[in-house]
Design a protein around this nucleic acid. Structure first.
Length: 411
RNA sequence: GCGGAUGUAGCUCAGUUGGCAGAGCACCUGGUUGUGGCCCAGGUGGCCGUGGGUUCAAAUCCCAUCAUUCGCCCCA
């Protein structure tokens, strides 16, 4: 029979990575919970229109990266490529969103891209969304919370980048200004993609990685210089709070997020140690999104962290030590050994028991590898007496005790 | 969607000009009647990614294909 393997870009998570994921999820619950965030679990499958309307029909994500297919009644469904849209949909549907609501979520996302280091077709994100706050302090809190969370994961060497994208009032004018600038420079030297972007999405030219494009746009007008007074003051307050909190950051005028719903504050956390896919978290403000999805006119701000990318940066923990390894030397003692091991576990001890009787040498080897503090040896002699040998794996000393007493002693 | 690299033992990888399929680690057994780590001896384990082609002969050369991986792009 031929083997069946995983789908390209889909990965099985074994230890130690699976342990890192659990650790991150636990820390998320703990840290975000302390900021008043509660967990929201939403479906993985949604109506395609949800993503087209929120992320933007013209974005790469929607145009060529979604897992979209018709269900049995012909409705177009899509496996979520990101979490924000679904979480917004859920909040709108539930209704009653008075005041501020804060939710976090985590789980798999799906994008049909070419896999590489730090990029899978099924990948995992931790998401936080804060609805109902338009104040710049909310932006600052979200950013500080993200950095707090990353710090709790042991990641302190990351760079925080921030930018402002302006709002409905000032972005169109800036866009026009930038387009004029781009038309003024030597058009032919731009890369093929950017030649198109001048028309379709001029802001994206600023984010191009090609060195020639970077050089050509060196003196391009920045969004920050051309935002309206409201946006300027909003952004100044955000930066001010970050400074008062001693949170280092760098202004990145080229930080243009790829999802259309972002406005005003955007931010990204990058690492130089994980290859080309350097962004480990990103987010921003999305005040128009909720109403765009048919809900009330609520402001929102949030972010997503890429768990695979964070895992690349985190130290892999070694296997947890165990309290005992129960070695069985005679087949007749196997059942007794199993029951004994279960009693010890119910008393709170961690350990394994051999399922087959084998030589003392091979079992001691096994015990050594398991990292067990004690090797419990049950051979023919002990079995007959109802006793067991307890060997300290560190000192090598051993003594014989009755099985009943062993159980009592650990309770 | 585009480009580069790589597919040989469970793992990491050698394999010369086309000529018997290899090493280290891991695993198992023994050296020690029932005592681990170190050491020694022996052993298990392979459709050489898959399918075609060239050849007396292919892991090796050619074509195709699949997979993995690193980039481009995009994004977390």
């Amino acid at each position: 029979m031929s083997k069946i393997s995983t789908i390209t870009g889909f990965a099985d998570l074994f230890p130690p990575e699976s342990g890192l994921f659990s650790f991150m999820e636990g820390k998320a619950r703990e840290v975000f919970g302390s900021y008043g965030y509660n967990e929201l679990r939403v479906p993985i499958l949604e109506h395609t229109e949800l993503f087209a309307r929120s992320i933007g029909a013209e974005t790469d994500v929607v145009q060529k990266e979604m897992y979209t297919f018709p269900d049995r009644k012909g409705r177009s469904l899509t496996m979520r490529p990101e979490a924000t849209a679904g979480m917004m949909r859920a909040c709108i549907e539930k209704g009653g969103q008075e005041g501020i609501s804060k939710y976090f979520s985590y789980g798999p996302m799906f994008r049909y891209e070419r896999p590489q280091k730090g990029r899978m077709r099924q990948f995992h994100q931790i998401d936080c969304e804060c609805l109902g706050a338009h104040e710049p302090q909310a932006d600052a809190e979200v950013v500080l919370m993200l950095m707090h969370f990353l710090g709790e994961l042991g990641l302190n060497e990351l760079e925080l980048q921030i930018n402002t994208l302006g709002c409905k009032a000032c972005r169109p004018a800036y866009r026009e200004l930038l387009t004029k600038f781009l038309q003024g420079i030597d058009h032919e030297q731009l890369c093929e993609d950017c030649k198109r972007r001048v028309q379709s999405n001029p802001l994206r030219v600023l984010d191009c990685k090609a060195s020639t494009c970077k050089a050509l746009t060196e003196n391009a007008p920045t969004m920050q210089e051309h935002v309206c007074p409201d946006c300027q003051s909003h952004f100044n307050t955000v930066m001010g709070v970050l400074e008062k909190a001693s949170q280092p950051f760098v202004l990145n005028h080229r930080l243009v997020r790829g999802l259309d719903y972002y406005m005003r504050t955007t931010f990204e956390v990058v690492s130089t140690n994980i290859g080309a896919q350097s962004s480990v978290a990103g987010g921003g403000r999305y005040d128009g999104l909720v109403s765009q999805l048919g809900g009330p006119d609520l402001p929102g701000i949030g972010f997503a962290c890429g768990m695979e990318r964070l895992a690349l940066l985190m130290q892999k923990e070694s296997a947890p030590e165990q309290d005992f390894y129960l070695a069985v030397l005679e087949a007749e003692a196997l059942d007794t050994a199993l029951l004994l091991a279960c009693s010890l576990r119910r008393a709170g001890k961690k350990g394994e028991v051999s399922f087959a009787a084998r030589s003392a040498k091979s079992q001691l080897r096994q015990a050594g590898k398991s990292g067990a503090r004690y090797c419990l040896i049950l051979g023919g002699n002990e079995y007959a007496k109802g006793s067991i040998l307890v060997k300290d794996m560190t000192s090598g000393e051993q003594h014989e005790v009755m099985q009943e007493e062993l159980i009592k002693s650990v309770k």
